[in-house]
């Protein structure tokens, strides 16, 4: 069982994801260079935050064309588990693995701060270590995190329970004030219909150790580790 953290030119949260997986939850992990297309031996692919290829053109647009992403799409289509954080979420939308797009923040400014997230489902490989409705304190750091999709897609995401994390206030209510970027329905993270691809704007890897003020994000990684261990046992 092994995690793979993809390194695009311009990735800058790659080392942070690697640190949490290897040091905090003690799981095997390797970097995957963006020109590599061989994902053999990996059980979970992490697309980290950053500014892949400088995010020129559109955030995530150039990365979605890279050799490694062709393989990641195939990996996901065969049921492989993928998580995209921040820029990783943008890349997943650009590559068609997740619906919708991430627009410029409604404030038109970059925003870095802790926000409250509500866990909407716990029957996924990403959230099994949380409780339903649990409010997490996890930071955001993005200029383009305003989740947008058409009404039909939104109805499907909500109807099928594909919204995994939502921006809320400290009481757990998704108010307009608690929405940091203008996302539709306060959406912070979604999964695909099969439940094996997650994209989220907040950074759980930045909230995985008490020393940094919050360990609320660690559950994403421990959930994944537990799910992967089960899958390995089953096969």
């Amino acid at each position: 069982m092994k995690f793979g953290v993809v390194v695009f030119p311009g990735s800058n949260c790659d080392h942070d994801a690697y640190h949490v997986i290897s040091k905090v939850i003690g799981q095997p992990v390797d970097f995957i260079w963006h020109r590599d297309s061989n994902l053999d031996g990996f059980d979970c692919i992490v697309l980290p935050g950053g500014f892949s290829y400088g995010d020129y053109l559109r955030t995530g647009a150039i990365a979605s064309m890279s050799p490694v992403m062709r393989s990641v799409v195939g990996f996901a289509n065969h049921g492989g588990i993928v998580i995209g954080i921040c820029n990783g979420f943008q890349i997943l939308c650009e590559s068609g693995l997740l619906p919708g797009a991430l627009l410029r923040n409604a404030s038109l400014a970059f925003a870095c701060r802790h926000v409250n997230l509500r866990v909407e489902r716990t029957d996924t490989v990403y959230t099994r270590d949380y409780e339903r409705g649990q409010v997490l304190s996890i930071p955001i750091a993005h200029g383009d995190g305003n989740y947008f999709c058409d009404d039909e897609t939104l109805a499907r995401l909500e109807g099928e329970g594909q919204v995994l994390f939502r921006y809320v206030d400290s009481k757990g209510d998704p108010t307009p004030e608690s929405n940091p970027n203008g996302s539709r329905n306060n959406i912070a993270g979604i999964v695909n219909d099969r439940g094996n691809v997650l994209g989220m704007m907040p950074h759980p890897e930045r909230a995985s150790e008490e020393a940094l003020g919050s360990a609320d994000g660690r559950g994403v990684f421990t959930s994944l580790a537990a799910a992967l261990a089960e899958l390995a046992k089953a096969s």
């Binding site: 800058n12 949260c13 080392h15 942070d16 640190h19 949490v20 935050g49 400014a109 970059f110 925003a111 870095c112 701060r113 930071p139 750091a141 950074h203 890897e205 930045r206 995985s208 150790e209 940094l212």
Partner: peptide, 10 residues
């Protein structure tokens, strides 16, 4: 400082 990423590199 809200406009600066002050947490990257954890």
């Amino acid at each position: 400082y809200d406009q600066y990423d002050h947490m990257v590199r954890t």
